[in-house]
Design a protein around this nucleic acid. Structure first.
Lengths: 228, 228
DNA sequence: ACAAAAGTGTTTCGGCTACACCCATGC
DNA sequence: GCATGGGTGTAGCCGAAACACTTTTGT
């Protein structure tokens, strides 16, 4: 596709981001409470236009920096939504991304200023346009990734206990995992490094902290969750 | 994203399709031999522009009809490629799809007219721009799908033997599967319907034909190929 | 008779599951 | 002492993998 581009139609192209965060055993999503028309007062995903001089990924990063103040966020493409009437304001092609961010790091003042809020995944209100479908697609993709790769690096604090990691998985998959089996499974991957100190606030006995080893080989692909 | 669209930049948006076909135990891809500048003589994927009044999926379907004469083709989104310089002719955002088509059904005269050819997957020549990356991404997605769903419906003739199905899988994964185990695995899914007639051309003994049962429950999600 | 694919049966092995059970500690 | 989460051990089960073996038929 390269000859005489200029005679062909051009389109408005946007990015919409599903920003996952994790706090108090709950998977959350950063949503925006629209303060103007159309759909004023409704909740929507965080999005923005793609500029002429930026890739879709750069646009998503820019939007994330504007809202959360965070750079170097984990981002993954989900899907393109291009129905003609998906946005009542006009024909807009939207490229959907999901992001994982560490809630403890994010700039809440900035988020507040943009009228955003962290909403528990299982308590998502009605969203504008096709944003619910986008959210579902992003969640499926997140589960798929978490099922064959150990995630958590981008959602948990640097140091975490295995119970915290398990509860993250329980929040993502909305189901329980056997504590003993989960522990054995994730440790067998050899991606976690045991620390010498313990967390004593979540239990009486105290649980050792772990952290992700930053090896190159950490692209381990194994079945962590078999079916879902 | 809906207020005052008109002040925001618009982009050229294209679709590029990786069209998979299967013939003589070989996985093939339909490529186009460019007959004009730029990159004249080079091979490229089949693509086209998205029109104002069509979705990305519709654009891909239209392109496929133009080239193969086939409607109702299996299509799946792969990924968006949006690097600024990916197309030397200008800034083009490309939405990549892969398709599976039955080679026995396709219109070879039409394809010929467009300067296209079926190339074996493991003998792909150098492709223009970022089309090689697109092809790799599409192949990964195809393998992922084939690993948890029984595919073949869209690549094989209506009637096929289990050996033909196995060889399709071997072509997709570029590895061998144990004939006995493969047979037991796919039959255990209960998605195939044994026919009364046999194929006698591929072997002396003859092998029963099977066909896909067209049940709704055929959305079975199981591990057909564990790791790859 | 032999080769070659079709089709069935069997054994082994590893991993997941479901537990039981001990440990450490705050109350 | 007892409740609670931390952590270890183990028996059973299921499915994948490896491979032996029998069937059928064209040459």
């Amino acid at each position: 596709m390269s000859d005489s581009h200029y005679q062909y139609p051009k389109h408005h192209v946007a990015v919409d981001c599903i920003i996952f965060g994790y706090e108090k055993d709950i998977l959350k999503v950063l949503l925006s409470h629209r303060r103007f028309q159309p759909a004023q007062g409704d909740w929507s995903l965080i999005g923005g236009w793609i500029r002429e001089e930026e890739t879709a990924e750069k646009a998503a990063e820019r939007v994330l920096v504007e809202i959360t103040g965070l750079k170097d966020i984990y981002l993954e493409q989900v899907e393109v939504f291009s129905k003609l009437d998906r946005d009542p304001g006009g024909r807009v092609i939207s490229i959907v991304f999901y992001a994982m961010i560490r809630l403890d790091k994010h700039d809440s003042v900035l988020a507040e200023k943009h009228g955003t809020g962290w909403i528990a995944y299982n308590k998502i209100p009605k969203l504008v346009f096709d944003h619910e479908q986008m959210l579902l697609a992003a969640h499926e993709k997140l589960k798929l990734k978490a099922s064959y790769e150990l995630i958590g690096q981008n959602l948990l604090p640097t140091k975490f206990t295995l119970t915290q990691l398990r509860k993250l998985y329980e929040a993502i998959f909305q189901r329980k995992f056997d504590p003993g089996n989960f522990r054995k499974k994730v440790l067998s991957l050899g991606m976690l490094e045991k620390q010498t100190d313990k967390n004593t606030s979540d239990s009486k006995k105290g649980a050792y902290y772990y952290r992700f080893e930053n090896k190159e080989e950490n692209l381990i692909r194994d079945n962590i969750v078999k079916r879902f």
